[in-house]
Structures are given as structure tokens and as C-alpha cells.
């Protein structure tokens, strides 16, 4: 179990115990974190799992693939240097991520 902290767009923080094999997206869905939709089920098709990675062992995060980089071009909330797709982030290290506000 790894602790992943999600800071939701209203400022509240949810700490989730992620199970082995979970991604930042799937752990958020299982814990009902607001704002992470995961519409395509982790297929890098929708960018509705966009998060800002605030604190993480940055060096140990998997490098961004070209596909992820290209999908991040169509997020609802602005892309920043901290932007990642939650479905592409494994949960084997504790992490703090901020969830952008997404319109319905």
C-alpha cells in the first residue's frame, strides 16, 4: 500500500491507500476523488485524468511517452510543467497530486 494524496479543486485533501498495480487514475476512481474522470479507462484517449504532480520522487516517475505528451495538448485545464496523465503514473511511490477543476 502506497499513500497517494489528492488535493481536490475545492482545496480538500484525500489520502488514498493505493493497491499494487493501481495508477494515480484508478486509485482515485476507486476512492471517489472528485475531478478525476478517466473516461477512456486509461487508454490515453481522453485526458480526463489530468493531474499536477506536486511532490513526488520526480526522478523516479516514469518518463513521459510521446503519446502522453501529445494527449496533454488537449486537457481541459491548462497544461503546466507539472502536468501528467494520472492513468500513466504507477503508484509505487508516495505522491501528492493536485486535481484540476473539470467542467461537467
Amino acid at each position: 500500500m502506497t499513500k497517494i494524496d489528492y488535493i481536490q479543486s475545492d482545496g480538500t485533501r484525500i489520502t488514498v491507500d493505493a493497491a499494487p498495480g493501481d495508477t494515480v487514475m484508478s486509485a482515485a476512481i476507486a476512492a471517489d476523488v472528485d475531478g478525476i474522470v478517466g473516461e477512456c479507462g486509461g487508454n490515453m484517449m481522453c485526458a480526463t485524468c489530468h493531474v499536477y504532480v506536486d511532490e513526488a520522487p520526480a526522478a523516479r516517475l516514469p518518463a513521459m511517452t510521446d503519446d502522453e505528451d501529445q494527449m496533454l495538448a488537449c486537457t481541459e485545464a491548462p497544461r503546466t510543467a507539472l502536468s501528467r496523465l494520472g492513468c500513466q503514473l504507477p503508484t509505487d511511490e508516495p505522491m501528492v497530486v493536485t486535481v484540476p477543476g473539470i467542467p461537467t
Binding site: 490515453m44 510521446d66 503519446d67 501529445q70 494527449m71 495538448a73 488537449c74
Partner: peptide, 12 residues
């Protein structure tokens, strides 16, 4: 086919 940048641009 394995070209997500084209796909996202096409959607726009």
C-alpha cells in the same frame, strides 16, 4: 495509427 497528436488535432 499510433499518432495521437494528429488525433487530438483532428478532434479540434
Amino acid at each position: 495509427v499510433n499518432a495521437p497528436a494528429d488525433h487530438t488535432a483532428a478532434r479540434r
